[in-house]
Simulated scan of single mutants.
Amino acid sequence: MLITVTGGIGSGKTRFALGYAARISREGIYLSTGDHDPVIPELPSAHYRAIQAGNGQHLTEVLHQINRESNLFLADQRIVIVDSLTAWMAAGFRASDDLDQQRSETQLLLDALLSYQGKLLVITNEMHGSLYPSEEERIFAARMASVNRALQAHSEQMYLLISGLAVDLKDRGLRYED
């Protein structure tokens, strides 16, 4: 089960995601990049553990490792929270100037997210452009928006946070058709 929480910076995504996760799962793993807050937010219960996965580890590898070590019979009782996908992707973009390598890493990450067995809650940012973005910013924003669209297409639930208010996008009945 894939759940996506999106919104702007400081909109309340993490607080909402942790509260929501506590309502639907008895235990969880909070994967943090560690770059958005110096401290990990208060976790819902002792059955939740935090992993600082932003220091040199790649999210793709971490997700595959958790998936391999998971007991599929108990996977529905646990949720993995990724906070935030945008920060991981930005770190990948900073690590390499090779656009083909960036595209390949993005696809591997998306494949890992979509193949995860169990409940997965992904926190991501809505991409807003500036008046005069650099070429790098434009490419990153386009790639991030593309990943967000793929997550939306595969998510059972998707929430948009605006000033702490969550809007259930899948429940609104709005659909974009190609």
Rank of each mutant, 00 (worst) to 15 (best):
residue 12 G to I: 05
residue 112 A to H: 05
residue 2 L to N: 06
residue 38 P to K: 01
residue 55 N to P: 00
residue 40 I to L: 01
residue 82 V to N: 06
residue 128 H to G: 07
residue 79 I to M: 08
residue 52 Q to H: 12
residue 17 A to V: 01
residue 130 S to Q: 10
residue 147 V to G: 12
residue 114 L to Q: 02
residue 137 E to V: 14
residue 8 G to Q: 06
residue 84 S to Y: 00
residue 28 G to H: 03
residue 60 T to D: 09
residue 39 V to L: 13
residue 1 M to S: 13
residue 37 D to V: 00
residue 159 Y to W: 15
residue 151 L to G: 11
residue 36 H to V: 09
residue 25 S to I: 06
residue 43 L to M: 01
residue 85 L to C: 07
residue 8 G to V: 03
residue 49 R to H: 12
residue 73 F to A: 15
residue 17 A to D: 07
residue 89 M to F: 06
residue 155 S to M: 14
residue 24 I to S: 12
residue 10 G to I: 03
residue 99 L to A: 14
residue 44 P to C: 04
residue 113 L to C: 09
residue 18 L to V: 01
residue 88 W to P: 00
residue 7 G to I: 08
residue 23 R to S: 13
residue 129 G to V: 13
residue 165 L to E: 10
residue 97 D to R: 07
residue 65 Q to Y: 07
residue 6 T to M: 15
residue 116 Y to L: 05
residue 83 D to T: 07
residue 98 D to I: 04
residue 14 T to P: 00
residue 153 A to G: 12
residue 92 G to H: 03
residue 103 R to E: 04
residue 132 Y to K: 14
residue 136 E to N: 10
residue 46 A to W: 03
residue 84 S to I: 00
residue 52 Q to W: 07
residue 79 I to Y: 02
residue 108 L to V: 05
residue 122 V to C: 11
residue 85 L to G: 08
residue 139 I to D: 11
residue 110 L to N: 01
residue 108 L to E: 04
residue 97 D to L: 09
residue 39 V to Q: 08
residue 83 D to C: 01
residue 82 V to S: 13
residue 92 G to Q: 06
residue 89 M to R: 08
residue 115 S to E: 13
residue 92 G to N: 14
residue 169 L to G: 03
residue 136 E to Y: 09
residue 33 T to C: 10
residue 111 D to Y: 00
residue 118 G to I: 11
residue 9 I to S: 15
residue 149 R to K: 14
residue 142 A to P: 05
residue 81 I to Q: 02
residue 97 D to Y: 09
residue 147 V to Y: 09
residue 45 S to K: 06
residue 56 G to A: 02
residue 18 L to R: 06
residue 96 S to F: 09
residue 87 A to C: 01
residue 42 E to H: 13
residue 155 S to P: 10
residue 128 H to D: 08
residue 111 D to C: 01
residue 9 I to W: 05
residue 116 Y to C: 04
residue 35 D to G: 10
residue 54 G to R: 07
residue 113 L to V: 04
residue 130 S to H: 08
residue 75 A to H: 04
residue 96 S to A: 15
residue 60 T to A: 03
residue 43 L to P: 10
residue 137 E to F: 03
residue 32 S to K: 02
residue 55 N to K: 11
residue 47 H to T: 08
residue 143 R to N: 10
residue 157 Q to V: 02
residue 98 D to W: 05
residue 35 D to E: 12
residue 108 L to I: 03
residue 37 D to E: 09
residue 134 S to R: 05
residue 123 I to N: 02
residue 114 L to Y: 05
residue 76 D to N: 14
residue 141 A to Q: 13
residue 12 G to S: 09
residue 67 N to D: 10
residue 109 L to D: 07
residue 147 V to H: 10
residue 104 S to K: 04
residue 119 K to A: 10
residue 88 W to D: 10
residue 84 S to D: 12
